[in-house]
Design a protein around this nucleic acid. Structure first.
Lengths: 229, 229
DNA sequence: CTCCTTAGTGTATTTTTAACACTAATGAAG
DNA sequence: CTTCATTAGTGTTAAAAATACACTAAGGAG
């Protein structure tokens, strides 16, 4: 069965740049291609948009199918529409970037036999298609966005220490921050809920745990207060 | 002649939200539809992407064909991919926003017989398709972007007074700014070139003219300095 | 009980932002 | 040619925010 149209049509795909964070590095999820073109090369997870799903649904579906990642924080990045970006035919792709808590997925990913893996963002192989460019665009977007929207919390466990949070910003922004100033600022925003718990299994003084107060943040945005690191 | 594919494909279009600025208002360019669906309704200029042009080229071509606007400052806005956004069939659109100097186009537009017209942004008719939503997204993007990138200059004549520039920000951001603080800040950025000219044909003291120094701005960005109103 | 490691805290200085009102210049009107 | 109307142009002070900086506290390991 085929589908016919009066004019030629570009194929429409989605691609996802999914970031994760471990103790020391920013990671991204890649999959290894097992068919041409670029067979054997690493690429972004993605695929064709079906006519009965929204573009966002397509991104989530492909991500689930290819990497097992579900319910990921996902935002649209940019649409790449150059003519020769795919050697086979005209393909336009809507790129997305996502953030996941590696702590939630560490186990799952390990049990999965797919050719999907986390790579350090600053030690990547050359990717298939124009995915290097998409990756770079996504990283820049993340660096920008993290500074004025509290999306970083999507990369941390639900409960985290202030040191973990500071480290997150240092890794993403690629610069050091002053501990006292950072704490003053983030606590002053009043978007963190202090818990009656401390971290465990550490060979030194245990740090207090906090949780991001999403509701409080939404109220503040409504009042026009703006978050900025 | 028809074109056949193994799977059904969405049609891919572009739509443009083009802003202009006159003395008192922010304007947007709309076209009146002369075919169904939404016949007679106002809509964003746009149309189908051809397979032999990039998505950006399609946006520029459609804009030229439907409104006569050329060489417009244009940036990608967002891709709208809901399933039922076009009642005829599945259509995904890559939306763009543009900025033009009305002063350059005032004459041309008047001589043009097309059903294209400038509307005040805060007094718009209901638009066809999901174009109200695209318009709103574009306006929010403009408000955001104008604060930390000097794109506002694209809306002014090459030579402008500081009062015109301030007025631009006041209109877009929809709030008043303090004259002395505004001047201090913008001049302190060192991105304006003071000219040896003053405005003419005004019934009061003539103001000095300035020009945006694009090269200087690029250098500053390279050094990591950031523009912010 | 000593050592190692990370948690947690306050102040002083500099920079940035915000608030605020008068004089200068020029054309228009009489 | 004087007056009027209108917009251009200019500095200072106070408040708030950002930055720089170093020690004590807590807890597990040995």
């Amino acid at each position: 069965m085929t589908f016919s149209y009066e004019y030629p049509r570009a194929a429409l795909t989605v691609d996802c740049v999914v970031f994760g964070l471990d103790e020391a590095d920013l990671k991204v999820m890649l999959i290894q291609r097992n068919i041409p073109p670029f067979e054997g090369k690493w690429a972004l997870p993605g695929g064709f948009v079906r006519v009965d799903e929204t573009v966002e649904e397509a991104a989530r579906r492909e991500l689930q199918e290819e990497t097992g990642l579900e319910k990921v924080f996902l935002e649209q990045l940019y649409t790449f529409g150059d003519i020769d970006r795919d050697p086979r035919e005209r393909v336009v792709t809507v790129a997305w970037y996502g953030l996941v808590r590696l702590s939630d997925y560490r186990v799952k990913a390990a049990t999965d036999a797919r050719a999907a893996a986390w790579f350090c963002r600053d030690d990547l192989p050359r990717l298939a298609f124009d995915h290097d460019q998409i990756m770079e665009t996504a990283y820049q977007r993340l660096q920008n966005k993290v500074r004025y929207q509290p999306i970083g919390f999507e990369l941390l466990p639900q409960k985290f220490t202030l040191t973990q949070l500071q480290k997150l910003y240092e890794i993403i922004l690629n610069r050091t921050l002053d501990k006292r100033n950072f704490r003053k600022k983030i606590l002053g925003m009043d978007i963190l809920q202090e818990l009656d718990e401390v971290e465990t299994d550490v060979a030194h003084r245990a740090a207090r745990l906090y949780r991001f107060n999403k509701q409080r943040y939404r109220e503040m945005v409504k009042q026009g207060v703006n978050f900025e690191i």
